[in-house]
Design a protein around this nucleic acid. Sequence first.
DNA 1: TCCGACGGGAACCTCCGGGTACCTTTGGCG
DNA 2: CGCCAAAGGTACCCGGAGGTTCCCGTCGGA
Lengths: 126, 126
Amino acid sequence: MSGFAPGECFLADCPGRLTVELIADKWTAVVLYGLSRGPVRHGDLVDLIGGISRKVLTQTLRRLESHGLVRRHAYAEVPPRVEYELTPLGATLIDPIHVLTEWARENGDAVLDALDADPESVARHR
Amino acid sequence: MSGFAPGECFLADCPGRLTVELIADKWTAVVLYGLSRGPVRHGDLVDLIGGISRKVLTQTLRRLESHGLVRRHAYAEVPPRVEYELTPLGATLIDPIHVLTEWARENGDAVLDALDADPESVARHR
DNA sequence: TCCGACGGGAACCTCCGGGTACCTTTGGCG
DNA sequence: CGCCAAAGGTACCCGGAGGTTCCCGTCGGA
């Protein structure tokens, strides 16, 4: 519990808040991660991620694009082909996201244990 | 762009998804970070974080509690006093979150630049 | 000739995140 | 004596994020 300087950040107008706004979204991190090994087509991303709707994927990608994290390549072919890839800036976000997945791999079970070992905490009010 | 093994995770039912479900929330990461230096009272957290409403803070803390990341201490005093603190499991999440804040400190400006260097992309479809 | 492949977009709906206002308990104080 | 303040929780309501469905565009192939 030492080595952090928590008070300095995450409080209202600090840069950490920005990142949270960016990736603390239901799908953003997953999409970024799905792009981490190279360009992927829109439809492939839908299959790859699983559970995301095409509309939301498009929205997410558009937002990431406008934030400079993702680049869009539309080829004038038929049937249309669109590929998305990380920008260099976007690629720098993979590491932090990767840290999260590592955490999940190590502690995911503990969370699940706590979840079903603690059903009364939902019912307990005081 | 090497060293990752992206395909293995983040795809539907992998553990990485769990973490995202956990902290990919507007406030969760911020709250965890606010608790990272020790027990904090409910009201103090509201002030510390800034912008969160008491209700949402309570909801967030409750969820974290049921996930085993936060422990709640309610003292039978008047006026009531409630303190929240990280569990050991919750403390392990501080590092990954810290990585995110580091990213923000380094790349936050680049994101903001991309945002207002690309205003037409926002107007184009939003 | 008509359908299928691929990606985008509009219309519609549902659900829950978030804000507001009120409730609780008891001691302080007018 | 009675009313309010402090601190946290909660009932209720609304807006918007996210999902579903359908439609569009074009060309190749059955």
